[in-house]
Simulated scan of single mutants.
Amino acid sequence: MSTHELLSNLKSIRSKQPWMVLSAAQKFSLSNARNASISHFYSFEVKDDDEAIFAIPDGCVDILFDCDSSRPSAKVYGTPLEATSIPFNRGHRYFGVRFSAGIMPDFLATSAQELVCNEHTLNEINPNINQLFEQIINTECFTEQVAYFEQFYGHQEARKCSATTYQVMKSIYQHNGNIKIQDMEALTGYTRRTIQRLFIDDIGVSPKLFSRIVRCQSAVYNINHSDHLELSNLAFDLGFSDQSHFQKEFKKLVSTTPLLYKNSVKHDDYINKLHYL
């Protein structure tokens, strides 16, 4: 696959975790999912160094399998609300499932709100998942791991959210997170109190926080996939009052400045790690 084809395919992934890619010892493998509730699958071996690995806000639930032969495990992660260090085991190989933003898989016996900024051991919130766990950790083949999870998830469902939450979430994405609560009230006909209650029950965070997450990911996405991007224009398009505000927010959520991030993801060290199946 050419670099152009690779980057074209990567445009379908709206939830980015760039520091995971850079933490890979060699290749960071990616695969689309057949089920729209799943954003994508990924797999990588962690570099054996002391550099911190950050997760950034993406609004997603991840299930991450540590496929180490002697100490395998599986954890469920909710979205962070700012750049957060993840304690990966150095030299271990991981297989990950990232659900689409705002999707809460119903086989997890926990609320969306309980997952935000938290991690849980998979078998603690679903003790009936041992067969899937054994299948995934007992193969080193990424495509087989994807197939096992898709076979399992074919019998599952995403948790249903209210029509109001869906309407608000769709509008947040349409505006790249640059939307006010007054606009949500006008859109739905409900008060902010009702909108917030429904949204937190369904998604785990308030509409305001979800908008912040979407705006962060929109900035990351545009930097990743635009060759001639002016950061000042991006800040304006996303509704920041000025570039200083944009830089401050970006650094808090992504752990670096927009310019340094741009230099990282446009570098061959980043692009050459990506392997799309």
Rank of each mutant, 00 (worst) to 15 (best):
F210A: 12
G154S: 15
D106A: 15
A219G: 05
N35T: 03
L209M: 13
Q113W: 02
C117Y: 02
G239Q: 06
D268N: 06
T3M: 11
R34W: 00
K262S: 13
K16E: 05
M104R: 15
Q17K: 01
Y153H: 10
F99K: 04
D58Q: 09
S12N: 14
N32I: 07
L132H: 03
S39W: 08
Y153G: 02
H267E: 05
N233L: 12
E51I: 08
Q156F: 06
P57E: 09
E114P: 00
H275N: 06
N224Y: 12
S264C: 06
S31L: 04
H267V: 00
Q17A: 04
N118I: 00
H228R: 11
M184E: 00
Y270P: 07
I195W: 01
M1P: 07
R90E: 00
D237A: 11
H92Q: 01
V61K: 04
Q182E: 15
Q247P: 02
H225C: 02
F44K: 12
V76A: 12
N224L: 14
F99M: 04
F133V: 01
A186W: 04
Y276F: 10
R192A: 13
T194R: 13
F41V: 08
G189K: 08
R71N: 13
C216M: 14
H267Q: 03
S29L: 07
E119G: 08
Q151E: 13
V21Q: 01
T191D: 07
F28P: 09
L81P: 09
S39M: 13
A147W: 01
V265G: 01
T3Q: 10
P127E: 04
N138A: 00
L115A: 07
D68C: 10
A33E: 10
V76G: 11
Q131L: 13
L238R: 08
K16G: 00
T139V: 02
C216N: 15
Y276I: 05
V76M: 11
G204Q: 08
D268W: 02
Q131S: 11
R192I: 01
R192F: 01
N176K: 15
T256D: 10
F250Q: 06
L115K: 10
T188D: 00
I53V: 15
N222Y: 05
C117S: 14
K208E: 11
D48I: 12
S241C: 04
F54N: 07
K75S: 14
H155L: 11
D68W: 06
D62V: 10
D269E: 09
E82M: 10
V61D: 03
C216G: 12
E5A: 13
R34T: 06
A33K: 12
I179T: 07
E144Q: 15
L122I: 08
L209Y: 05
L81R: 14
E134K: 13
Y42N: 14
F65N: 11
M1C: 02
I103A: 09
A186I: 10
M1Q: 06
Q247C: 14
V61H: 04
F199Y: 10
F210L: 14
R14Y: 04
A36D: 11
R197Y: 05
K251S: 13
A158N: 11
N272A: 01
R14W: 02
H175F: 11
L187P: 03
P207I: 10
F240K: 07
T164R: 13
E114G: 00
T188G: 00
D183W: 00
T143N: 11
D227W: 01
N89P: 00
T110S: 10
A83F: 02
Y42Q: 13
N130H: 07
L122N: 07
S255L: 03
